[in-house]
């Protein structure tokens, strides 16, 4: 009992620090989002939920929301599928296994801004290696259709390794005996995968999904460097739009509203996954 009390005291400094650096800014942003605050017009007054109401009529917001959903759904699905396949392959024993694992990590190790600049050149219509390889003259970043998919592809390339590493770790925990037992019972490869590997991997998969969905939903740096949100706002995500409203046009009230929307969405996504995680899945 005494130890518990001591423990409580020890938690206080961290709570104070956290509330200073996260809770206070969060509350302040929410407060700002209820204001009409236009620095350049010298306007600053309370407007209640007006900013939230005007979201519905803001075509650029709806467009950014749509882009964010598309980007998140497609990139996370692809990353999980590819990551799972790669993890299962890597998990077998073969020569140079260690080397392969290290090589797989390279894209993840490159700083985002650097890899975005790299992909900007890879996608270049004229000098880019992608067009050179496929012998085409596609303007990847110049057409609204290709640009968002090019951004998804870049993200898949960069973060699949992260998924692979987490899933590999999950696979290694599965005891060999289970595979052997399944074989003895006459289960085929597919049955082993769906009946043994997937169920046992489920908690790890959910953790991967939480990380990746949240990251993808808040994506900013990679796309901002790659396209700046263009062409014609076709790659403008919620975070990029919020950044432009906040720091380029100094509309602090409305920009904060956008930030709060991103926060609420990521909060909802987290709650959804954590519910799934705590429900019925345990090793």
């Amino acid at each position: 009992m005494r130890n518990e009390e001591r423990g409580r005291w020890f938690v206080i400094p961290s709570l104070v620090l956290l509330s200073l650096v996260t809770v206070y800014p969060l509350i302040y942003v929410i407060y700002l989002s209820l204001q009409r605050r236009l620095l350049i017009f010298d306007v600053s007054r309370f407007v209640g939920i007006d900013n939230y109401v005007s979201l519905a009529g803001d075509a650029r917001f709806l467009n950014a929301f749509k882009n964010t959903l598309y980007f998140t759904a497609l990139s996370v699905t692809l990353e999980l599928a590819l990551g799972l396949a790669a993890a299962v392959l890597i998990n077998r024993s073969f020569r140079l296994k260690g080397l392969v694992r290290a090589v797989v990590l390279i894209p993840w190790a490159i700083p985002t801004v650097v890899s975005a600049r790299m992909w900007e050149w890879i996608y270049n219509t004229d000098f880019g290696i992608l067009n050179h390889l496929i012998g085409a003259k596609i303007n990847w970043l110049g057409s609204p259709f290709w640009a968002i998919n090019a951004a998804v592809f870049m993200d898949v390339w960069k973060t699949t390794p992260f998924v692979v590493i987490l899933l590999t770790a999950g696979l290694q925990v599965i005891p060999r005996e289970l595979y052997q037992a399944a074989r003895v019972d006459g289960a085929g490869r597919w049955a082993v995968f769906t009946r043994i590997v997937l169920p046992l991997l489920k908690p790890v998969i959910l953790v991967v999904l939480i990380f990746r969905t949240l990251d993808a939903f808040r994506v900013f740096d990679a796309i901002y460097v790659l396209t700046g949100g263009g062409p014609a706002n076709s790659t403008e995500t919620l975070s990029i739009y919020a950044y432009k409203v906040l720091f380029q046009t100094l509309r602090f009230g409305y920009g904060s509203t956008l930030a709060v929307v991103v926060f609420l969405c990521t909060g909802a996504i987290s709650v959804f996954y954590i519910r799934l995680l705590s429900k019925g899945v345990r090793l």
């Binding site: 110049g142 609204p144 263009g230 062409p231 014609a232 706002n233 076709s234 403008e236 432009k244 380029q248």
Partner: peptide, 15 residues
């Protein structure tokens, strides 16, 4: 901000 996105829309052929 408005001009950048509208000009880009015209040049990329979406408008």
């Amino acid at each position: 901000q408005v001009m950048q996105s509208e000009f880009s829309a015209a040049l990329s052929g979406t408008k």
